[in-house]
């Protein structure tokens, strides 16, 4: 893989990804998608008997639930909301004139009831809350969603639209913490079987602004977030391909998810960056999947 060409250019040249003209927004080839899908199947063999249900979300979530999540408090720079034309004939004419003149035609767009999902587990919480108190064993959900984060980059591992597969545990503090510790171990086992260099490290989310630095420091001090780091675009700054998060009772309180005794539920999630893991496999095992090491082929192709 030693080449003066960037990894992204190599992926374009081998038609594994296709450029769109916008950084971080790429078409995936059949080959790429086959690896994504095989990784998902592989991931689901871990902890499959613990799952109580599975969900897949569309890329958008209700704006009201997005607001409840508090995402705009912490990550306003990454959020994306869906806006649409809601005018009449005259507005339409004005819009077309604006476009023809190369002016900003988006000023009149109005907010819809849809926000783009920033993290795959967000739409789950209001669904659980609406069901009333959790069953005694809590919930253990396997889910997947496209996510959006506004951070255009030439690093192929930092896409604007990407998929996360997650397992989410909702229950008592002990259940949530035990879940996260189990998945830290399982994540390493998965990486070993995929023959990827990896390291688990404490981490923080990219909170916005100066206040965000304090939020990040606080998150680290409380050891709430760990990441599975794998070198993809650079060895110096390896990429988080998985994350293991304990949210305390923040989401339980925000969405009013209750345990049987009426107290707010604690939540934890493990997230797999599907594009990132797929890119890591291409980065370390080569662009020709047929030539990947036998152990990796065995794990993914069976």
């Amino acid at each position: 893989m030693s080449s003066s060409k960037s990894f992204l250019d190599q992926l374009f040249e081998s038609r594994i990804l296709h450029a769109s003209g916008v950084d971080g927004l790429y078409a995936r080839s059949g080959t790429f998608e086959d690896v994504v899908s095989r990784f998902e199947t592989f991931a689901l063999t871990f902890g499959e008997h613990e799952i109580t249900e599975a969900m897949v979300f569309p890329p958008g979530m209700p704006m009201a639930d997005f607001e409840t999540s508090g995402y705009m408090k912490n990550f306003p720079q990454l959020a994306g909301t869906v806006h649409a034309f809601c005018g009449g004939d005259h507005d339409h004419m004005g819009l077309l004139q604006c476009m023809a003149a190369g002016e900003d035609w988006t000023k009149g767009q109005e907010a819809t009831q849809v926000a783009l999902i920033p993290a795959a587990c967000y739409p789950l919480y209001p669904i659980l809350a609406r069901r009333g108190a959790l069953p005694e064993n809590g919930a253990y959900v396997a889910l997947q969603s496209y996510c959006f984060r506004h951070e255009p980059s030439k690093d192929p591992a930092r896409m604007q639209m990407f998929r996360q597969r997650e397992y989410v545990r909702v229950g008592t503090e002990d259940q949530a913490m035990a879940f996260r510790e189990t998945w830290k171990e399982r994540g390493q086992e998965m990486m070993k079987r995929l023959c990827l260099p990896h390291e688990v490290d404490i981490a923080n989310d990219p909170f916005f602004g100066r206040g965000g630095r304090m939020m990040g420091a606080s998150q680290r001090e409380q050891a709430l977030k760990f990441e599975m780091l794998v070198p993809i675009n650079s060895v110096e700054s390896p990429t988080a391909c998985m994350s293991f998060n304990y949210h305390m009772d923040n989401f339980g309180k925000a969405w009013d998810i209750k345990l049987q005794d009426g107290s707010p539920a604690h939540t934890a999630c493990v997230g797999f960056g599907l594009e990132r893991i797929t890119l890591a496999l291409f980065r370390h095992h080569g662009l020709d999947v047929a030539a990947w090491p036998e152990d990796v082929r065995k794990a993914l192709w069976g």
Binding site: R210, G211, G212, R213, M214, M215, A217, S218, E221, Q222
Partner: peptide
């Protein structure tokens, strides 16, 4: 964080990096 920002505004100071913690 809200408190930190309010303190900065009131006292016209900036909390340095090493004090931005719990």
């Amino acid at each position: 964080v809200q408190l930190m920002l309010a303190l900065e505004e009131h006292f016209d100071v900036e909390f340095p990096e090493h004090l931005l913690n719990r």
